[in-house]
Amino acid sequence: MTLSDFTSFLMKNSKTIMEYSENHFTLVLLAVGISLAIWVPVGLLLTKSDKWAARVLALANTIFCIPSLSMFAILVTIPMFGLGRKSALLALVLYAMMPLIRSVYDGVKNVDRNVIEAARGMGMGTRRILIEILVPLGMPIIFAGFRITVVMTTGIAAIATYIGERNLGRFIQEGLIRSNTPMMVTGALIISAIAIGLDTILGLVEKRIVPKGLRISR
């Protein structure tokens, strides 16, 4: 395979690439959105109970261990889900459980207890402490979890092509079946570029998101 194979593939299939990319992003966006909506509140709630936190984190850890292809395969056999987007979404949301819950929990738990004690002593209510102290101070860790989730979801979403998603993973799948190397490599490169790009951009944001007071020292 040469560079010209690559560019000619890009030219010829630009429409398909657009379509697959769109599908890919829609799936990632949906999965990350749903995950945030569920796991962030769960993570926050768990900071209230160490006992439950240990249980839920252990569960999340276990789920996270399951190979992604296995996860898709298992969900597909469940009649309610089957082949298609429902299974794909559920799998991605389940994977996001570990990094999101863990980072929210760690982020909030890492906040200096004395700061919270002092804030409470000054008459700040629970809500205010959450909004003004816990979230901004926990943000660097929470955001790191978010970054991992986004990059991971982008990668795993590609595998969902095997359960019927028509996204960027399909180039790899089809390329393998048809021994079409340019197709396969192009697909792999596009996904890699997107993942690395997202990781880099979010990494930059992560550095900027640290509150100024924590970045500087004497």
Binding site: D112, N114, A118, G121, M122, P211, G213
Partner: peptide
């Protein structure tokens, strides 16, 4: 608590 000053050993200033 808003009406009572409170100072602790670890100070607990908001670092951000």
């Amino acid at each position: 608590r808003m009406g009572i000053g409170y100072v602790i050993q670890q100070i607990g200033l908001l670092p951000h």
